[in-house]
């Protein structure tokens, strides 16, 4: 049977930063071949194929919230595998090896995490699950 791929619309121009990515133009329609939880999606936009940021795409049919898991305010324990310094004021700065709680796994790869009293976005690419529940 043919494989029906999800179609998404590009919501903002994106210039690729490595050769495995593709440039996106606002309004382009792309088909998604693979969705990584780190927020990079493998797309095709004939004749181009490559990785694109999920944060620049919106689904053609229905809100993407339906695909997204609900927040888990109890938190799921993860360890940071790489340090990251916040670039925006809603992000968290964390060192490598810190244990944090993931409370919302967003499709764009920037999960909402909690460390003590602080909450903010952090790249899921730099997180590893500990397998423990808080």
């Amino acid at each position: 049977a043919p494989i029906i791929l999800d179609s998404y619309r590009v919501i903002a121009d994106y210039r690729k930063t490595s050769k495995y990515e593709i440039d996106l133009c606002t309004g382009d329609l792309v088909e998604i071949v693979e969705k990584k939880p780190n927020g990079w999606w493998f797309c095709q936009c004939e004749p181009k194929r490559g990785w694109a940021p999920a944060s620049y795409l919106e689904p053609l049919d229905g809100p993407e919230e339906s695909e997204e898991a609900d927040p888990d305010y109890a938190g799921e324990l993860y360890i940071t595998t790489k340090a990251y310094s916040a670039a925006l004021d809603d992000e968290l700065t964390l060192e490598e090896g810190e244990t944090i709680e993931v409370i919302h796994k967003l499709l764009d790869g920037w999960w909402v995490v909690r460390k003590g009293e602080e909450t903010g976005h952090f790249p899921s690419m730099f997180l590893n699950r500990t397998g423990e529940k808080k």
């Binding site: 780190n38 990785w51 790249p123 690419m125």
Partner: peptide, 22 residues
């Protein structure tokens, strides 16, 4: 391989999308 995803975090959503979600 072409299927190797980028090793850096993807960009945050454009500013207007972040506002819409907030």
């Amino acid at each position: 391989s072409i299927n190797r995803p980028p090793q850096n975090p993807p960009p945050r959503p454009p500013a207007e999308m972040r506002r819409k979600r907030a």
